[in-house]
Amino acid sequence: MNRLEAKDVLRWVLDHIVWFILFIVLAVFSLTVKGFAQWDIYRNIFYHAVFVGILAVAEALCIISKEMDLSVESVLGLAAVVTAYLTGTSTDASGLMLNGYLVLGIVVIIGVVIGLFNGFLIINMRISSFIVTLAGYLIFRAVGLILTHGYGVVKLRPELLAVARTNVGPIPVMILIMVGIYAFFFIFLTRTRFGKYIYLVGDNRTASYNAGIRVDRVLLGVFVLSGVLAAFAGWLIAARTNGSSPGIGTGMLFEAMAAVVIGGVSMQGGIGNLTGVFAGAVLLSALSTAVSILGIPPFFMNIFRGGFIIVAVVLDAVISRLRPRLM
């Protein structure tokens, strides 16, 4: 009996290994990096993780279903540009100065349309999601640039600024929004039928199809959710930066991918959970915060990110081999 419990504990630890790594890294930084162990720094780490964190949810949904979405970063960029263009008060904006929440609706619709577009090409035209969303990665960024002729737009309407600046107690609303998204999609993936289908379809498409699951609908849903999440993150980042620059969010795709992989979502499909992805996003954010506090040149950042990806994948391989012995 005792032995059985020890195995259960070990299995639980292995399943949540990224959380242990996160706590160790935070502890090490807090003890060794001067000025790290304070509330403001921790708040910044979470604030900084919001956009990559939300993109990582989108990416996790796709990768669990054994697809991928390389367009999330550019969808974020496009949504940010559209938000700034429609609500901005500077000269390069549209001059419409629409209400920020109306624009949120518009941006969500853009996300849905992009998701349907990606989904149509991937499911109905049977083109690999890598190719389709790689094209999307190029196209959606360019559409944003064309819209504002490559200029940045600044000074958005006050209701958008409020989203970025309001706190609930000591916690910024932005962080609560991210946590809310994670909580919602965690329940969605683990407790609802559609969420479970995302896992099953990613795990074995033939078995899912044979069982009568409408695989194409599940995948379409995944790409629409991915588009909407990315667009929403774009709206948030426009609010945060009080505008949008042409290159807004550049590089976030690979950070989001890194968070997903570090968080234990497997490229095999059908494996992984959002708690791990959340920890992965926070871990990457903590890392860049530590690097900037320490004054290490920022171009070292990607070496650390890459290093964590390799550590995560090696750990995953080791754990997969251990698991059968822990039954």
């Binding site: 609802t192 039928r193 479970k196 896992y199 099953l200 795990d203 074995n204 033939t206 078995a207 899912s208 044979n210 069982a211 009568g212 699951i213 095999q268 059908g270 494996i271």
Partner: peptide, 20 residues
């Protein structure tokens, strides 16, 4: 025969017929 290897026995048993 194809099964969902990363899903539980009960998930495979109820696949496509989930109680919800």
């Amino acid at each position: 025969s194809p099964v969902c290897e990363n899903a539980s026995v009960s998930a495979n048993f109820f696949i496509g017929r989930e109680l919800c």
